[in-house]
């Protein structure tokens, strides 16, 4: 009765109560091997304990919850397409894989160089624009900028009244 032996009474006894026929076979076995009687009794008792374990409870709406959690056909289709590409990639040999990796790297490098070129052209264009601008006003003018700016904020109604009075 070691692990590699097939023990029919263990096999069936764990799943259901031994039938009359199986019990008869068992009695015949014990009669032929009385030294194993205790061992067999223990095996049967363990079967009984395991068999009678109650099933963990499941909510009555379990199936409904599973169905509600299913992805939509569109999601399943997208995943399936992605999985197909992934499997295709895995199925390639090392040479096509290297070629593909080289191609992707080259494309990446080309894109980067193209981006850098574009950036330089933009920079040159900006420099050209700035060089065309005439010289800025001197800093002395900007020093009184706040005072001059405030003058323009004087309410115009007062000015109008003054002009009216002068007339």
């Amino acid at each position: 009765m070691n692990g590699s032996d097939s023990n029919p009474w263990i096999e069936t006894g764990l799943r259901h109560e031994p039938t009359a026929e199986e019990q008869a076979q068992l009695r015949a076995f014990i009669k032929a091997n009385p030294n194993l009687a205790t061992r067999v009794a223990e095996e049967l008792a363990l079967n009984r304990l395991l068999r009678q374990l109650r099933d963990p409870p499941l909510p009555s709406n379990f199936t409904a919850r599973v169905l509600a959690a299913l992805p939509s056909p569109a999601q399943v289709g997208f995943r399936a397409r992605w999985a197909r590409w992934w499997r295709w990639g895995h199925g390639l040999g090392w040479a096509p894989k290297s070629a593909l990796a080289g191609l992707i790297l080259s494309l990446g490098l080309l894109s980067y160089l193209e981006y850098q070129h574009h950036e330089r052209v933009e920079l040159a264009r900006s420099v050209t624009k700035i060089s065309g601008v005439t010289t800025l006003v001197s800093l002395d003018v900007l020093r009184d900028f706040d005072a001059i700016n405030r003058l323009s904020q004087v309410p115009t109604k007062v000015d109008d009244d003054l002009l009216e009075a002068l007339k």
Partner: peptide, 15 residues
């Protein structure tokens, strides 16, 4: 054979 052995050893521990 490994599976049968796993079941056997598990049962021995349970016993």
């Amino acid at each position: 054979s490994a599976t049968k052995s796993l079941i056997h050893r598990g049962r021995e521990t349970l016993k």
